[in-house]
């Protein structure tokens, strides 16, 4: 592992910055780094942000890494420093050689004093239920209302030439608003229309029209 690591660092350094060869070597170095034992882990709320910043810093500074030192110590040194302050400039960082930069207990205690919200896939529903209810004017909801109401009649007017019933409003409701969204092939079967006809109508006429409508809803300042 250690040998592989040194070989990869040398490979990264051999190529000029921004070259595809260097970026590919960095891919390998990052993947290996993530498997290394001893990379510092913490439940501190800043940990994931700091880890992200550390990967970026490593990619930028790998040329100045001293190959005679421990890579893991070098990595953890910056990471622990970053956890303590996410927003100061890299210029303020002075790597202390082999000394651990921060006391681990100190970091952990700090982490425990700040509430650390846990995000999870199955928690999204519950989170959104409250969050959505709290928002008085939901722009996303207004967009859906627009599609359902079609106040200017644009969506219903955008239909297959031979089939006025097969219009953009119906398709948008089935493909985009329906839960779960219907597949174009399924709608084609239901309406007894050729798949390709429906697909090209959707792509050529409906999507551009819906893009126009999307633009009505300006980002809030």
């Amino acid at each position: 592992m250690e040998e592989e690591l040194r070989r990869l660092i040398a490979e990264v350094r051999a190529y000029p910055s921004s070259s595809p060869q260097r970026r590919k070597a960095l891919n390998k170095l990052l993947m290996l780094t993530q498997k290394l034992r001893g990379i510092y882990r913490s439940t501190h709320p800043n940990y994931l942000d700091a880890l992200d910043r550390t990967f970026e810093w490593v990619c930028k500074n790998i040329d100045v890494f001293n190959l005679e030192r421990s890579y893991v110590v070098w990595f953890n040194g910056y990471l622990k420093w970053r956890i303590r302050d996410l927003y100061i400039s890299d210029n303020e960082y002075i790597p202390s050689l082999d000394q651990p930069v921060a006391n681990e207990d100190e970091l952990r205690t700090l982490g425990e004093t700040i509430a650390h919200p846990k995000f999870s896939l199955s928690g999204i529903d519950l989170l959104l239920k409250t969050e959505q209810e709290e928002q008085r004017q939901r722009q996303g909801k207004a967009v859906w209302e627009y599609i359902k109401q079609d106040p200017a009649g644009k969506l219903t007017q955008c239909h297959l030439q031979k089939d006025p019933q097969c219009h953009c409003q119906l398709l948008a409701q089935e493909i985009l608003l329906h839960d779960p969204p219907k597949k174009i092939a399924q709608i084609a079967r239901e309406l007894n229309i050729k798949n390709q006809t429906l697909y090209s109508h959707w792509n050529r006429h409906c999507i551009p029209l819906l893009r126009e409508i999307a633009l009505i809803f300006e980002p809030k300042p």
Binding site: M31, D52, I124, L128, E131, Q132, G140
Partner: peptide, 28 residues
């Protein structure tokens, strides 16, 4: 595979954008 940590700001944007949506499914 490469693992990428999700930053706090990513969750803030995600929550903000999802909370605007009409339904829970769309929000997710």
């Amino acid at each position: 595979l490469l693992t990428v940590p999700l930053k706090q700001q990513a969750h803030i944007y995600a929550q903000q954008f999802a909370a605007e949506q009409a339904t829970i499914e769309k929000g997710k």
